[in-house]
């Protein structure tokens, strides 16, 4: 058996075979006898061990894993907006149209993701699967008032946290979709729409903080001094930890760093700093462009890895569900 011929053959069906070996470089420590001939009897066992390590430990999420995580997040968002629209006295009339638009976009994203997944799509978990209080199924988490009449400010704060989690999640998921260009492009086309939603939700929050509703006044209200309550439409630094940094769960996780070192399968070179990051691909943006740290952080959104995304989302489902596991 020619080991290298074997690997060459595998490369035809899996171009990443070398990387799989390489990222587990320690397996080659077993090859100290490279110059010697492995005995015919020992070879099969060695090869099995080699491939088990290459394929058994470094595998990241599949395309379907990524799409189903995205679909789960879309359901989370969809039912949040839909429940808000169906709660009397929650969403002020001048802002209803926007929430309808956003709810419908999420519905379209669900349709798109279901179409891409086919029979692999997770079933619709339904409204009852989600605990928007952040109480993991108890219904008594800190965000419970967000869906009660009068909870308008908190509702938009939670909405911002969900949508920004979504933006970061798609950004973190995209590299796993590169094997299918059409699916990748669809995901990118969802990603930017989520960012548009975030921008608008933040605009509404500036209006709410200033006591104005709808247009054009919300859009012509400048961001206030406190990014937690009157944010820019882009993420500035870590936005002070987001709308509700002091609660458990805390929105600080939405804007903070992800899992580092990155979890399995994340391509080398991709890391998950917090949104206040000002260093991109080794370049310090503040230095290069002579802009403030705030501006440098605003100019680049940051991805979030699938482990961190799931951890954030699990606060909004009962521990017994299979969502976000």
């Amino acid at each position: 058996m020619d080991l290298f011929q074997l690997i060459t053959e595998i490369e035809k069906v899996d171009p990443e075979v070398y990387e799989r070996f390489d990222s587990r470089r320690r397996v080659f420590k077993h090859l100290t006898g490279m110059g010697k001939k492995l005995s015919a009897a020992a070879l099969p066992g060695f090869v099995a061990a080699l491939f088990n390590k290459a394929y058994g430990q470094t595998a990241g999420p599949s395309v379907n894993d990524v799409l189903n995580l995205a679909l789960s997040l879309e359901y989370l968002e969809f039912y949040f907006y839909d429940t808000g629209l169906n709660t009397t006295g929650l969403i002020p009339e001048p802002e209803r149209r926007a929430i309808e638009l956003i709810r419908n976009d999420e519905s379209g994203h669900i349709k798109t993701l279901r179409g891409a997944l086919g029979s692999a799509a997770i079933p619709d978990p339904g409204r009852a699967a989600f605990d928007y209080s952040g109480g993991k199924g108890s219904g008594t988490g800190p965000f419970a008032p967000a869906l009660l009449p009068g909870g308008t400010a908190l509702y938009f704060g939670v909405a911002q946290s969900f949508v920004d989690t979504g933006v970061r999640a798609y950004k973190g998921g995209a590299p796993f979709l590169m094997t299918n260009k059409d699916i990748l492009e669809a995901a990118l086309n969802i990603h930017s729409v989520e960012a548009r939603h975030s921008s608008h939700i933040r605009t509404v929050r500036r209006g709410l903080a200033a006591g104005v509703l709808g247009g054009p006044t919300s859009a012509t209200t400048p961001a206030g001094a406190d990014p937690k309550v009157s944010p820019k439409s882009w993420i500035s630094g870590n936005d002070g930890g987001g709308p509700s940094p002091q609660t458990n769960p805390s929105t600080a996780d939405v804007y903070g760093p992800g899992t580092n070192p990155p979890p399995a399968g994340v391509p080398t070179g991709i890391t998950f700093p917090g949104e206040d990051n000002v260093v991109q691909a080794g370049r310090t943006i503040t230095t290069d462009s002579g802009v403030s740290a705030a501006a440098a952080s605003e100019a680049f959104d940051e991805p979030l890895d699938y482990v961190k995304v799931k951890a954030i989302a699990r606060n909004f489902v009962a521990a017994s569900t299979t969502l976000f596991v």
């Binding site: 933006v167 798609y170 950004k171 995209a174 590299p175 590169m178 990118l188 990603h191 930017s192 729409v193 989520e194 960012a195 548009r196 939603h197 975030s198 921008s199 608008h200 605009t203 859009a219 439409s233 882009w234 391509p267 991709i270 991109q280 691909a281 605003e298 100019a299 680049f300 959104d301 940051e302 991805p303």
Partner: peptide, 17 residues
């Protein structure tokens, strides 16, 4: 791809506002 993703969502935030 990840770098482009970091930028495009900021452009989308700009566009929306």
């Amino acid at each position: 791809l990840a770098l482009a993703g970091k930028i495009v969502s900021v452009e989308a935030r700009h566009a929306a506002l």
